[in-house]
Design a protein around this nucleic acid. Structure first.
Lengths: 190, 190
DNA sequence: TATTTCATGTAAGCCGTTACATGATTCT
DNA sequence: AGAATCATGTAACGGCTTACATGAAATA
């Protein structure tokens, strides 16, 4: 049982889904892709954590709709109670930011623009997802509560990133030097 | 040239360091470990991006102090100008949060406590790092500017995480149910 | 007309993790 | 006394990524 396996069980804990669904939804919060998911689902089924039913389709491969078993839920809950490992984060933009000290303002601007652009895209995506939740007639029910929390988190993360980009820009003077107020802090509002 | 290679070049762009230093510093912003770094540094040296000088020590292996070459800087800057790939994030706590809808309040509390505890630890670590910057006599100079920006970012990220945990707790009533105000938003202050 | 979406799957190869290996010094 | 820190390195194994493979329907 590797970490991705628990990711699949987690996302199957709310409602049955296909491997394709899992690829789309899980990937929003855990970097992965379909060729890692499909074989793992088969393995999880062999071990009895999940099972699938077929739904016939025309023009496309038949859907395999997976649902979690009692044993899968039990295993999932054991993992949920166990110590959480450190997040694995590999973000090229962090590396690029580290280099800002040796770069001219124009290049810094370009990289900042890209980071802010990506953050804004993320923000829009998650804001749209939030709209979907708000469009539902039901309240914060069991099935969507976790996803709702994650979307709220993603939105605030994205907003913070945009703010941070703007803060970094504010550290430069118009002629491309750094203001020499020594140590300005980001977001004292916290 | 894989991503970690650019990470090494990035962190060598400011000042010469050993593989051990790189392991410590880079690991704060890019998940890695020494056994990935040492062989890569040798490769980078073979290819002419970095070179090292030996510093003898007693009781420990001699230090290999790596510095980046002109060619390394050129290569680094090309990468800095190229499109940034999406961050790879694999964070178990995100998966656990997804499961909150199927969990009792006590288990949610336990997981939230762990997340908040880890975030607070991170926060303290980065606040200490910030103190180091503020203790320096020099202003925001070239060598430390990037690291300073990253630390500022890490601090605000950690604070946001703590706030988010507190917000989630506020969604539960004392008897362990969810408040039914439908859709409360996290941090409207942005 | 071309690309994206839906929907599944396999195979090769790289990258990185875990473990092994050494050893003095410092901290708890 | 035992663990952590400093400091380098190698080897094996596993997991993930990239690419290959198919094909209808919808979108741009």
């Amino acid at each position: 049982m590797n970490k991705l396996s628990y990711g699949l069980l987690s996302f199957l804990s709310t409602y049955p889904q296909t491997g394709y669904d899992l690829m789309i939804r899980l990937n929003q919060f855990w970097h992965t892709n379909h060729s890692a998911i499909y074989p793992l689902l088969s393995e999880l089924e062999e071990k009895g954590y999940v099972k699938h039913t077929l739904k016939e389709q025309q023009g496309k491969p038949d859907k395999k709709i997976y649902c979690i078993t009692e044993y899968g839920i039990k295993t999932l809950k054991e993992w949920l109670m166990s110590t959480t490992e450190d997040a694995v984060i590999k973000d090229e933009s962090m590396l690029k930011i580290y280099c800002f000290g040796i770069l001219d303002k124009e290049i810094v601007e370009k990289i900042l623009d890209e980071i802010e652009f990506n953050a804004t895209n993320h923000l829009n995506k998650y804001v749209a997802a939030l709209e979907n939740f708000k469009g539902m007639d039901c309240p914060l029910n069991m099935q969507f509560f976790g996803a709702y929390l994650l979307v709220q988190k993603a939105i605030s993360d994205a907003k913070l990133k945009v703010k941070w980009c703007q803060w970094v820009r504010s550290l430069y003077t118009e002629d491309g030097n750094l203001f020499d107020n020594k140590f300005m802090d980001f977001l004292d509002l916290f």
